[in-house]
Simulated assay, not measured.
Amino acid sequence: MLTAGTERRIEPRHRVGEGGEIALDEHTTIGCLVHDLSASGVRLTLPDAAAIPEVFLLSAACLPDAAVCRVVWRDDETIGARFEN
């Protein structure tokens, strides 16, 4: 049984606090803030998470290359996404 404060993530996450960009198509990007980063995914905040498609391209200085991401969960201003291989 999990108790409050139990870490359920498979991989450790690292706090980032750095800007990034989500490409909606080849002509449109939306700025975001990268909060947490792990080898398998990322947590982002932006003004309207509902505007982001289920699969998107994320670019940020904390990533070695642009990454294809798939939304795992979202609320009004936050997205949790995993990196696609």
Rank of each mutant, 00 (worst) to 15 (best):
R13K: 07
R13Q: 10
R13F: 06
H14I: 12
H14E: 13
R15A: 15
R15D: 09
R15I: 12
R15F: 13
V16A: 06
V16W: 04
V16T: 13
V16K: 06
G17I: 01
G17H: 01
G17D: 06
E18I: 09
E18C: 10
E18A: 12
E18N: 01
G19L: 11
G19M: 06
G19P: 11
G19F: 01
E21T: 10
I22C: 04
D25Q: 08
D25E: 09
D25R: 08
E26T: 01
E26W: 01
H27M: 03
H27P: 00
H27G: 04
T28F: 02
T28S: 12
T28G: 05
G31W: 03
G31R: 08
G31A: 07
G31Q: 06
C32L: 01
C32G: 03
C32I: 01
L33M: 10
V34S: 05
V34T: 06
V34E: 04
V34P: 05
H35T: 00
D36W: 01
L37I: 06
L37A: 02
L37H: 07
S38K: 00
S38L: 10
S38F: 02
A39T: 10
A39I: 10
S40A: 15
G41W: 00
G41L: 07
G41K: 08
V42F: 02
V42G: 01
R43C: 05
T45H: 10
T45V: 09
T45I: 08
L46Q: 09
L46A: 09
L46M: 15
L46F: 04
P47H: 07
P47N: 06
D48I: 02
A49Q: 02
A49Y: 11
A49R: 03
A51M: 12
I52H: 02
P53A: 05
P53W: 01
P53Y: 04
V55W: 08
V55A: 09
V55Y: 11
F56M: 00
L57I: 07
L58V: 02
S59R: 07
A60N: 05
A61F: 05
A61K: 09
L63I: 02
L63H: 04
P64E: 07
P64S: 11
P64V: 05
P64H: 04
A66F: 07
A67M: 12
A67N: 04
V68I: 08
R70Q: 15
R70V: 14
V72N: 02
V72F: 06
W73S: 15
W73I: 13
R74W: 12
R74V: 10
R74D: 13
R74P: 09
R74T: 13
R74F: 08
D75S: 15
D75F: 12
D75Q: 14
D76K: 15
E77N: 15
T78L: 14
T78Y: 07
T78K: 15
T78N: 14
T78C: 15
T78V: 14
I79F: 14
I79Q: 08
I79N: 13
G80Q: 13
A81Q: 11
A81P: 09
A81E: 12
R82K: 14
R82A: 13
R82Q: 13
R82H: 15
F83Y: 07
E84F: 14
E84R: 14
E84G: 10
